[in-house]
């Protein structure tokens, strides 16, 4: 079984749970480090960023006074989630990630070639997610308090990141809620934010169709989670001396992380963009060159044998485009039958 398939299955389960889980009166809280949108009515759990921004927009006195305990509990819960699951949230749980993977699957099924970022472009936009993270912290702070003597920001700026996150218009759609597909003319701030939101949602759909995991390259949650890359329970280790730099992993990586194929001296391969989809391990033909670990214990290692087994399965699987009979046997490799 390809890890890819298992992952898609897990993603689908998590998607259903996070979007409709609320119908079962069951929820895993509101501090989950993944884009499970709070605007979805029947959610089974929701994104950490919304309450985080709400807390930050409180006046200092309140945040460090009456709300301090609640805030700390929030942060603590988030910390635990992030420590235990880390980037697996991005690859295996995030509903927006799942949607993008679905769009990619559709593209591949139709047979349209995908595109990749030019290396330079990709490197150039690495800062965006950190900038968004900084903004989603600073802007709410400026609502409740005056930062550096500036006048307080308008409350229309409340939860600024959620206002532009593609999850807000798109995820409620799965519950038939179209109310977030709007451009809000009630104030300039709202007009700008809601226009941006529509634009980004459009980019999400179009970009996701062109390139795998397009929007993830700009996600502030990934920036936040990458703080836990080194200390998180789930790890991805590389054994440099076993690597031939064949580039299989780099080609397979949905996040187009070059380090995975090119660095031999780096051991911890959970880089800032890594989403722990484990696809790189799956396509690595060198024994133990890449290993996924949980609390340091290896759970899934690259091996030549496993590689061949999985590849063999795909080759003989016969999807929508290819029959199960080896096309070569009758036409090419068997001259006798060809001549007869």
């Amino acid at each position: 079984m390809r890890v890819d398939r298992i992952r898609l299955f897990v993603q689908a389960l998590c998607f259903v749970f996070l979007i409709y889980g609320g119908l079962t009166i069951f929820s895993i809280g509101t501090a989950i480090p993944t884009m499970a949108c709070i605007y979805a009515e029947n959610r089974g759990g929701s994104c950490f960023l919304y309450p985080f921004q709400r807390f930050l927009s409180m006046p200092w006195a309140m945040l460090f006074g009456s709300a301090a305990t609640a805030f700390l509990i929030y942060l603590g819960t988030f910390f635990l989630w992030a420590l235990v699951f880390g980037k697996t949230f991005c690859g295996w749980i995030c509903p927006l990630g799942f949607l993008q993977d679905l769009i990619t699957k559709i593209r591949e099924w139709v047979g349209i070639d995908g595109s990749r970022f030019a290396w330079k472009t990709r490197d150039r936009f690495q800062w965006v997610k950190y900038a968004l993270l900084a903004l989603l912290i600073l802007l709410p702070m400026g609502i409740g308090n005056s930062l550096l003597g500036l006048p307080r920001f308008t409350p229309d700026l409340a939860v600024p990141f959620c206002q532009i996150c593609p999850g807000k218009p798109l995820i409620p759609l799965f519950e038939g809620d179209l109310s977030h597909l709007i451009i809000d003319f009630s104030s300039t701030t709202k007009l700008v934010l809601s226009s941006l939101s529509m634009l980004i949602a459009g980019l999400f759909l179009v970009g996701g169709f062109v390139k795998r995991r397009y929007i993830c390259a700009f996600c502030p949650m990934a920036a936040l989670l990458s703080l836990f890359d080194r200390i998180g329970f789930v790890g991805l280790k590389k054994k440099g001396e076993a690597c031939t730099c064949c580039g299989n992993c780099f080609r397979a990586c949905p996040m187009e992380i070059r380090e995975i194929a090119e660095l031999r001296d780096k051991k911890h391969m959970v880089t800032q963009d890594c989403m722990l989809c484990m696809r790189c391990i799956e396509v690595c033909p060198e024994n133990k060159a890449l290993t996924a670990t949980i609390i340091g214990l290896p759970v899934f290692s690259a091996s030549a044998e496993g590689f061949l087994k999985r590849q063999n399965k795909t080759a003989s699987a016969g999807g929508p485009f290819h029959g199960e009979t080896p096309a070569l046997q009758d036409t090419a490799t068997d001259p006798e039958s060809a001549s007869k």
Binding site: D113, C246, N248, V283
Partner: peptide, 20 residues
């Protein structure tokens, strides 16, 4: 020794895999 991936999604990707 070196092996390319067959399970690339599209024909173009398979060519890239071979090239790599």
């Amino acid at each position: 020794w070196d092996m390319a991936c067959i399970d690339e999604p599209l024909f173009d990707d398979m060519l890239d895999a071979l090239a790599d």
